[in-house]
Design a protein around this nucleic acid. Structure first.
Length: 361
DNA sequence: TCTGGGGTCCTAGGACCC
DNA sequence: TCTGGGGTCCTAGGACCC
């Protein structure tokens, strides 16, 4: 029989804000918001003092300033966050090898088979806090879903472990939105069917869910609500499957000429980044967000993989000209995908038939 | 003073091939 | 002559996550 899995979700408390506080200890105890300075920027992280005012991640910075006018607003410094992140996870990885990183401030660890896993975790988290100044909250359970929900439960400096049946009870009254994988849209659709809480979704009629969401999603939603999850902790990271660069403008841009200039700049940035990593892709795509927030993508797959600035730029420009937005544009982006280093060893293209036409009926 | 930027995965339809 | 059944590749949109 397979041993019972022990999965932990490790989540750094208010990570970006904490990195800033470490550099500027005089701000300790004050509400700190990490957000860009532009008129359309959003909050990346708010310190717990700022959260008391109702400030939260992904909130427009303008709204955050209104809620908490005394907050110190700091522009994000991703170089510093990446450096601190490396420090933190290096310490964790030295103790826990089966680790899957989820961005700069989170990771899953598989502690199946580890002796006294909770004690190991506690000591590790203490050690990381002492050595880096970063506080990790942990959730532990038989799968990733429960681990994730539990790490949220105790924050900040949380440490919560439970089994599946206990999770079913402890989260029964929570809104379905609290379950990772159920976003605002799905929560809304579930509420329309009368399923607002986790308990209600646990008891939901699966065929009714299937009629609304399809078979697969219905099964998925039921599994989430009952905290069944057998997804593994994926230790191997692997390179990104797509890479993109996009920009939201301070003010919408209507001029075609200006849009083309921006697109050239974005393509150049994208290609130079990829050239640095020697990655080449076959699919060039653009993304256009209009003034009314509708988002359009256009893509073209080329015969050969490339990261050539000229070719990517021309392709992106052709896609933009063919689409020809009829409203002012608030965001423009370029993306490269279908990387050749990810193709599962494609056989070389067969030589073109010589001296005959190839038919097969 | 509405709503960033970087990703992943899923679905659905059409082209095309055998 | 009145309509097969995959399979793959590609595009577009959408939901979700950090």
């Amino acid at each position: 029989m397979a041993p019972k899995r022990v999965i932990a979700h490790l989540d750094c408390d208010a990570f970006y804000a904490t990195v800033e506080l470490i550099r500027r200890p005089e701000l300790k105890g004050k509400p700190v918001i990490v957000a860009g300075s532009g008129p359309r920027s959003v909050v990346t992280t708010a310190s717990y003092e700022a959260r008391k005012f109702g400030v939260g991640s992904a909130m427009p910075a303008s709204q955050a300033r209104r809620l908490c006018p005394t907050a110190i607003v700091i522009p994000p410094d991703f170089t510093a966050y990446r450096e601190k992140s490396r420090e933190v996870w290096e310490l964790v990885r030295a103790k826990l090898d089966r680790l899957q990183s989820m961005g700069l401030d989170e990771a899953y660890a598989d502690l199946t088979g580890v002796e006294k896993p909770l004690r190991v975790l506690r000591e590790l988290i203490d050690d990381v806090h002492k050595r880096t100044g970063i506080q990790i909250s942990a959730g532990v359970g038989p799968n990733r879903l429960i681990a994730k929900c539990c790490s949220d439960l105790g924050k900040p400096a949380g440490f919560v472990a439970m089994g599946r049946e206990e999770a079913c009870i402890r989260f029964a009254t929570a809104p379905t939105r609290r379950l990772p994988g159920i976003g605002p849209k799905t929560a809304e659709r579930l509420a329309e069917l009368g399923y607002s809480t986790v308990a209600q979704l646990q008891e939901a009629d699966e065929s009714q869910l299937a009629a609304r969401f399809g078979d697969r999603t219905a099964r998925y939603l039921k599994a989430r609500a009952t905290f069944h999850d057998d997804s593994p902790v994926e230790t191997e990271g692997g390179p990104a499957k797509s890479v993109s660069t996009e920009r939201t403008f301070d003010e919408d841009v209507a001029s075609t000429e200006e849009l083309e200039t921006i697109l050239r700049t974005l393509s150049k940035e994208l290609c130079e980044g990829l050239q640095g990593k020697s990655r080449q892709g076959r699919t060039v795509a653009i993304k256009v967000r209009l003034a009314d927030w509708t988002t359009v993508t256009r893509a073209r797959t080329l015969p050969d993989a490339t990261n050539d600035t000229g070719l990517v730029t021309e392709t992106a420009l052709e896609l933009l000209r063919a689409y020809a937005p009829t409203q002012p544009v608030r965001l423009l982006g370029v993306r490269l995908a279908a990387f050749d280093d990810l193709e599962p060893d494609k056989p070389p293209a067969p030589a073109a038939p010589v001296g005959q036409l190839a038919f097969s009926l």
